[in-house]
């Protein structure tokens, strides 16, 4: 039996696009608004930001910063913030589970749909 897809109305087509777009913008902006996005960084010690020497930079490094137009690290404090790579094992486990679950889901449904396609295309 050949599968005959229904014809989709213009309105329904539009609706599908709106749904997909909502999901897309959600994925980018929801983490952004919840303040969860971006690198997890630790600010530099303000006491050290007063001079490049205090930050522990050598003469060449300091000279290059001055050539770029900065007089002290406090001109660009964000640059001296550091990542925090302490591993949260719980979060790591969640991530692994989510990734594997995702691929498992996609491959499983794909396989089902694929068998359909092949049997319709080449006959049973």
């Amino acid at each position: 039996m050949k599968y005959a897809p229904p014809k989709q109305s213009k309105l329904s087509q539009l609706f599908d696009v709106v749904i997909l777009m909502t999901m897309t913008f959600g994925a980018l902006y929801v983490p952004l608004y919840m303040g969860l996005a971006g690198g997890a960084k630790v600010e530099a010690d303000p006491a050290k930001l007063v001079s490049f020497e205090a930050m522990g930079l050598n003469a060449t490094q300091t000279a290059q910063y001055q050539a770029l137009g900065f007089t002290a690290p406090s001109d660009i404090p964000a640059v001296f913030a550091r990542f925090d790579y302490a591993i949260n094992w719980g979060a790591l486990a969640v991530m692994i589970v989510v990734i594997i679950a995702y691929y498992a889901l996609v491959l499983r449904f794909s396989e089902k749909e694929y068998r359909d396609v092949i049997s319709e295309k080449f006959g049973d």
Binding site: A27, V30, A40, N88, V94, M95, L105, V106
Partner: peptide
């Protein structure tokens, strides 16, 4: 995951949905 883990999970949740 190191630094941008939340973003990663949000993204995959999007693809699951």
């Amino acid at each position: 995951f190191l630094g941008y883990g939340t973003q990663l999970v949000a993204m995959i949740v999007f693809y699951i949905v």
